[in-house]
Computed example of a mutant assay.
Amino acid sequence: MTILTARVPEELAGMRLDQCLAELFPDYSRSKLQLWIKAGRVQVDGVALKGREKLDGGEEIELDAEAEVVLENDAEDIPLQIIYEDQAILIVNKPAGLVVHPAVGNWHGTLVNALLNHDPNLNILPRAGIVHRIDKETSGLLMIAKTLQAHHSLVEQLQARSIVREYLALVKGWMTAGGSVDEPIGRHPVDRKRNTVRRDGKEAVTHYRLEQRFKRHTLIRVKLETGRTHQIRVHMTHINYPLVGDQVYGGRFQMPADCSPELAEALRNFKRQALHATKLGLEHPETGEYMEWELEMPADMQYLLKVLAENELD
């Protein structure tokens, strides 16, 4: 058994207990939460209430969660580059090209399959403990919870926007200064595989600053305040600085003027979005200690920057 705790925020005041639990513990089904309420495994300020009873806000909830198998995916012997691991969390460097979650067309060969091979006990955690994701063709740091308590803590930190997530991105165009993009993101009205900025979308905030400028490209450091699907790619395209190599949001490929043969070849052969999750910072779920990791860019991005810098001298 695992005791998970949460305080009812004021914005949920007046909500029924069962509805409130669904908001506070979204990784468990409503039917499972209802069973736990009826079994007396949910305490509100130390008292077991019925699911229909309304809350005032500010109450302390204790959920006696039961560890059970929630994943049926296969474990597969796929190499993992482990940056850090202890009894509560696992930090990995995901290579470009590796899908994070199994789905239609990608049931095997994913990060989830690799994690289940590394630690079979992760099958009792939602999504094998993965609490955030990065796109298939994005490289870099990813955090995984190894216990229910750690999972709940990391999800809460994400919701509180206290986790540090920074990316390095190479964009088309010569930026003059850093800035922020505060534009809601939602599903594209025509192409359902894409997202776009739209008024009725979900809040999305991206901050960026300049790292290095080239003739017609800019390397930027991006900090996420929210975590919408394809957020960096959508926001950078929205302000007319699409990511190099982005096959979905980057538009038609155009060779820049005054381009050396080496740079032309490098750009033509770079088939993924030039995006790397370079920094991750969080509060350890058990010790409360702030921990941070930073990774340099992978070889393909480093080579592209090298050729861009050499092209400056031509």
Rank of each mutant, 00 (worst) to 15 (best):
I144M: 10
Y167V: 01
E166H: 10
Y167K: 02
I163E: 11
V171P: 08
S153W: 00
L148M: 13
V181T: 06
L170M: 09
A169L: 04
A150P: 01
Q149M: 08
G178A: 10
R161C: 06
E183P: 00
A169D: 06
I163Y: 08
V171E: 02
R161Y: 07
H151R: 03
V164H: 13
Q149K: 12
L158T: 05
R161K: 14
L158R: 02
A145G: 06
G173I: 01
D182K: 10
K172F: 00
T176Y: 03
V171H: 05
E156S: 14
A160S: 13
A177I: 12
R161I: 07
R161N: 11
A150S: 15
G173Q: 00
G179K: 09
V181Y: 04
R165H: 07
L148C: 03
S153Y: 00
A145C: 05
V155K: 01
K146M: 08
G179C: 12
S180Q: 14
A160F: 06
V181G: 03
V155D: 02
Q149N: 13
L168T: 00
V164N: 12
K172Q: 14
L168M: 06
R161F: 06
A160Q: 15
M143C: 09
S180N: 09
G173R: 00
K172H: 13
A169S: 10
W174N: 10
V155G: 01
I163N: 05
S180G: 00
L142W: 05
E166F: 06
W174F: 14
Y167E: 02
K172A: 06
H151V: 04
Q159S: 13
G178F: 08
K146C: 09
I144A: 10
M175L: 15
T176F: 01
R161E: 10
Q157M: 11
L148K: 02
L148W: 06
L142F: 07
M175H: 12
T176S: 11
V164Q: 15
R161Q: 14
A150F: 02
A150V: 09
T176I: 09
L154C: 11
A150W: 02
T176P: 00
L148T: 03
L170T: 04
T147H: 01
L141I: 02
L170Y: 13
K172M: 08
K146L: 10
